[in-house]
Amino acid sequence: MTMKAGIVRRFGVVEIDDVPRPAVGEGEVLVRLRAAGLNRADVIVRDGRFPEQPPLPIILGVEGAGEIAEVGSGVRNLEVGQRVVLLPTLVCGSCEACQSGVDSRCRALRFLGEHTDGTYAEYLNVPARNAIPAPDSLSHTELAASILPYTTAWHMLVTRARLRRGETVLVVGAGSGVGSAAVQLANVLGARVIATTGTDGKRAKLVELGAHEVVNYRREPEFSGAVRALTDGLGVDVVHNSAGGTTIQESIHALRRGGRLIGMGSHSGARAEIDLYSLYRNEIEFLGAHAADSRELGDLLPLLADGTLRPVIDSTFALDDVAAAQVRLVSPDRFGKVVLSID
Score class of each variant (00 low, 15 high):
residue 150 Y to H: 08
residue 150 Y to W: 12
residue 151 T to S: 15
residue 151 T to F: 07
residue 152 T to F: 00
residue 154 W to R: 04
residue 155 H to N: 13
residue 155 H to A: 11
residue 156 M to K: 05
residue 156 M to P: 06
residue 156 M to Q: 10
residue 157 L to H: 02
residue 158 V to K: 08
residue 160 R to I: 12
residue 161 A to V: 05
residue 161 A to S: 11
residue 169 V to P: 03
residue 170 L to K: 10
residue 170 L to H: 09
residue 171 V to T: 01
residue 171 V to I: 11
residue 172 V to R: 00
residue 174 A to V: 02
residue 177 G to A: 10
residue 177 G to V: 00
residue 177 G to D: 01
residue 178 V to H: 05
residue 178 V to D: 08
residue 179 G to R: 03
residue 180 S to R: 01
residue 182 A to E: 00
residue 184 Q to E: 02
residue 185 L to A: 01
residue 186 A to D: 02
residue 188 V to K: 13
residue 189 L to W: 00
residue 189 L to Q: 08
residue 190 G to F: 04
residue 191 A to G: 01
residue 193 V to S: 00
residue 194 I to E: 07
residue 195 A to S: 11
residue 196 T to W: 01
residue 196 T to I: 03
residue 199 T to M: 13
residue 200 D to L: 13
residue 201 G to I: 06
residue 201 G to Q: 11
residue 201 G to E: 13
residue 203 R to L: 10
residue 205 K to E: 13
residue 205 K to Y: 09
residue 206 L to S: 07
residue 207 V to K: 15
residue 212 H to D: 15
residue 213 E to L: 09
residue 213 E to H: 12
residue 216 N to Y: 07
residue 218 R to S: 11
residue 218 R to T: 12
residue 221 P to G: 06
residue 222 E to C: 13
residue 223 F to W: 06
residue 225 G to A: 15
residue 227 V to W: 00
residue 227 V to C: 05
residue 229 A to K: 15
residue 229 A to R: 15
residue 231 T to H: 06
residue 231 T to C: 10
residue 233 G to R: 04
residue 233 G to Y: 02
residue 234 L to V: 15
residue 235 G to Q: 09
residue 236 V to G: 04
residue 237 D to W: 02
residue 237 D to M: 11
residue 238 V to Q: 08
residue 239 V to W: 02
residue 241 N to H: 09
residue 246 T to A: 15
residue 246 T to N: 14
residue 248 I to W: 01
